[in-house]
């Protein structure tokens, strides 16, 4: 069936077009401007002269380490909590409180997570400004995303699947781990990737908990300070006059991809 639209309806479609165009144009513009600054040397070399020449390897590696650390923490806790909420949580006031906590945790601004991470991990626990502090902070920030994705994915698995498994003599845990969870895999994966993309792009948290601007060596352990792509972009764009323009433009290109 062909759709036909009246004039005011076309106006609505126009607003949709505009809303889609703005972010897409932004991304396209960045990639075009970035093309001039990207080279193999830029990706694989150490920065020299506070990053004005040389490459951004430590920032790339730093971001990868951050993601690794974040995943290590957020995946077991987030998926575990999601399984609990979807499969085992009794319908009582405590569970209701837990759900409310989850909603509110999702709404906390990242800079408040940063404040918490700074006071708790960096200062109180004495982890210092380090990969460890930043990864833990990012893990807490992304936790609600993973929990919600896991819970929703498990809710999407029909109850009859579990009942069939129970009827065959499986325990409740076996029904969940061998039947429901594998069915929910793709949902859990999507949620985790979403969480990681947020962790990779976040700047406010790591700026408070341990990112360094210029550190021309790779992090050696989770206790080292580190460079990271988004923070590098922030500093290059705001605090460094004389930074070659095409070198800055190349950065968001990586942040986006």
């Amino acid at each position: 069936m062909r759709q036909s639209y009246t004039l005011p309806e076309m106006f609505l479609l126009g607003t949709l077009g505009l809303a889609l165009l703005l972010p897409l144009a932004a991304v396209l513009y960045i990639f075009i401007r970035a093309a001039a600054g990207i080279s193999l040397e830029f990706i694989f070399a150490m920065p020299v002269q506070r990053g004005i020449t040389g490459g951004i390897l430590p920032a790339i590696v730093g971001t990868l380490w951050l993601l690794f650390g974040t995943t290590l923490v957020v995946l077991p806790v987030g998926v575990g909590a999601g399984i609990y909420l979807a499969e085992f949580a009794p319908r009582n006031r405590l569970t209701h409180l837990l759900e409310m906590a989850l909603i509110n945790l999702a709404g906390v601004p990242s800079v408040v997570f940063g404040l918490f991470g700074y006071a708790f991990f960096v200062l109180t626990l004495g982890f210092g400004s380090s990969l460890l502090s930043a990864s833990l902070t990012l893990a807490i920030m992304t936790l609600p995303l993973v929990v919600t994705a896991t819970r929703e994915a498990l809710h999407g698995v029909p109850v009859s699947f579990r009942e069939a498994s129970l009827a065959l003599g499986a325990t409740r845990w076996q029904a969940v781990s061998t039947v429901a969870l594998p069915c929910a895999r793709s949902g859990v994966l999507t949620g985790t990737l979403l969480a990681l993309s947020r962790a990779a792009g976040d700047t406010a948290c790591i700026l408070i908990t341990g990112a360094a601007f210029f550190l021309p060596r790779l992090p050696t352990s989770f206790m080292s300070r580190f460079m990271a792509l988004p923070y590098h972009l922030y500093i290059s764009a705001t605090q460094l006059p004389g930074m070659p323009v095409e070198r800055i433009w190349a950065l968001p290109g990586y942040c986006c991809s």
Partner: peptide, 30 residues
């Protein structure tokens, strides 16, 4: 209750604990 189920229960309550901890910790510093 198998230990795995205990583990996911702990994970669930970690979320609650963390939310409270963030508020309390920021409040304590303030």
């Amino acid at each position: 209750m198998p230990y795995q189920q205990k583990l996911v229960t702990v994970a669930g309550y970690t979320v609650l604990l963390l939310t409270a901890a963030i508020f309390l910790f920021v409040a304590a510093q303030a």
